[in-house]
Design a protein around this nucleic acid. Structure first.
Lengths: 326, 326
DNA sequence: GACCTCCGTTAAAACGTTTACATAAAATCT
DNA sequence: AGATTTTATGTAAACGTTTTAACGGAGGTC
């Protein structure tokens, strides 16, 4: 691969001149400029971005850390981030933390070692105070971290929308079926919003926390059946993710139980799958969250002010799983 | 951020010693080793990977180019790639080409400029001969490119499986409904395999090519209805992607037409959505394709031999959309 | 002609590493 | 004890850029 030296030699100028032409700085006569362009062309020259980054102390790389890549929420997020990043001249270094605290910490360190200019972090676990002192701008998604800028959606309102929707279906004892979450996650707000709104509306909500294991090992439908056994009075369902709801609704177990016809259901996320299965859901503007995070982190990189906290709106998408109960 | 110089000064040794300790090379007395470790600890030192890459002429970065990030096929692929890459000490630089030829070329050049050690490329469009001369190892997914190693699945067999399945449903005039594809894409083989197998079985297949636009602008169900109007004799459906099939099956238009009850349907890909909607499909081992591509590219990086061509098996997943016609 | 200014260019020192080579000290052999 | 090997360390030149400071020449002013 040709280097700046080769170009300089070929064009019979100094490397400084070539560099200045590449970066449009300093005065350059039109003649040399053309000569150098020609040489670049001839040698098929591309500057070595690593050398550049080293010298300029700026890599134009944004690091992204997600728990999973293929989970639809995250893949949309990544797509959004890449779209605004690439449009503003940044590249993406992608890491997967797998919901593992140690891995997450390691990924941040790895990105720092790779001198990324900024980091977008979807942290789900562990103590986040370690991120406070960092000099590289970090944007956290869906988790408030002291000192970092956070982008999230209005989970509390989303939860309350779900409650209202079940209320209009005539529910008295809606069952909240979703992961037990640490307080510090914004997602927890959707549970809180739901439960509080239920009480405000005079309903008597039930809560059946599920563990992450059930989701991955395919016993989730089973536990729903179990929970309905336990809470005989349950007359409505709030399942806190579309994917969870899809797994449950399409399981032979729940189909046999005629679940879909017996209980109104509201899910959460607004992913494609909810549309395919005609599930009422609370839609989050996932794409916008990603875009906002990317914009924020770039602001930070450029030394401009970042928001401390951005919250995007959510909305109810009314579909069959509640409509047919009205 | 502390550099190797700071560590050297702090430990009162030369930077060469620190470097040697970092890389476990050359003899080092236990005493200095401990001293240096302590200094690294104290200064919270992390080597600058860009400087390292520059010097060693090896970045430990693999570039990945996909048309879209959020399309499930690709997000699974990326997840698989990242899994084996990170396990072998490589990082990922992720690019989105958006099915755009110019962008794709630009992305390859960009990755070269960033000195990635290898590239995994999902090329869908344009003339691929430009990639032939490259010195960086490139693995192409689902597209044969002269001189590069290719990883794909047995599309021809997949197509023929679909034909057989429709045959056992008693079809005589199955309709192939899928994107019109350039010859050079392996995906085209699934069309060929389907059509040829149909003829071998004595069926008389129909073919309605769809354009990419219909998929994105939501008129896909409409065109299916149109195609069925045109081919009144159609008595079975092969839709060449799960997502397409899902869009069609869940559209109000086709629901009204009672499509699902009238025509047996085989889709393609084996994505989650096919399970949710209980669609018979041909499953591709997407994860394994990604893993294989990553392994191959790493082989190439290490100067070992790469396969010229790897083909993974596919399998029929029989579900409701054909079962109920048997 | 001496002095200044501007313009175009270059030489050389960074950026943070690795590594070939040199060297000093310690250990082993006569 | 001296010669030789081995072990541990340091010096300095790379890697491919950017950028500061310096420089030579052209043109203008006095």
């Amino acid at each position: 691969m040709a280097t700046i030296k080769d170009v300089a030699k070929h064009a019979d100028v100094s490397i400084a001149t070539v560099s200045r032409i590449m970066n449009n700085r300093g005065p350059i006569s039109e003649k040399t400029r053309q000569k150098v362009y020609a040489s670049m062309e001839a040698l098929n020259f591309r500057p070595n971005e690593m050398a550049r980054a080293l010298q300029k102390q700026k890599s134009n790389i944004i690091g992204v850390i997600v728990p999973s890549i293929q989970y639809p929420f995250f893949s949309i997020l990544i797509e959004a981030i890449e779209e605004v990043a690439s449009q503003k001249g940044y590249k993406l270094m992608l890491c997967r933390s797998g919901e593992d605290e140690a891995r997450e910490i390691e990924m941040v360190a790895l990105l720092e070692g790779n001198k990324v200019d900024g980091i977008i972090l979807c942290s789900r676990v562990g103590d986040a105070t370690i991120y406070e002192g960092k000099k590289v701008p970090i944007v956290s998604i869906d988790r408030r971290i002291e000192g970092l800028t956070t982008v999230t959606t209005d989970n509390y309102y989303g939860g309350s929308l779900a409650a209202k929707e079940l209320f209009t279906c005539g529910c008295q004892h809606p069952l909240l079926f979703g992961s037990k979450l640490p307080e510090y996650l914004e997602m927890n707000e959707r549970n809180r919003g739901f439960l509080e709104e239920c009480r405000r509306l005079g309903m008597d909500p039930l809560y059946y926390p599920v563990s992450q294991d059930m989701v991955t090992d395919g016993t989730i439908a089973q536990s729903l059946i179990a929970s309905l056994d336990q809470y005989q009075e349950a007359d409505g369902l709030f399942i806190t993710s579309d994917v969870l709801a899809a797994e449950i609704l399409t399981s032979p177990l729940t189909k046999a139980a005629g679940l879909a016809d017996r209980l109104p259901l509201v899910a959460y996320d607004g992913l494609e799958v909810s549309r395919y299965l005609d599930i009422t859901t609370i839609e989050q503007p996932v794409y916008e969250v990603g875009a906002c995070a990317a914009e924020q982190v770039i602001q930070g990189i450029q030394g401009k002010m970042m928001h401390a906290y951005s919250m995007m709106p959510v909305q109810l998408i009314e579909r069959a799983t509640t409509k047919k109960f009205k």
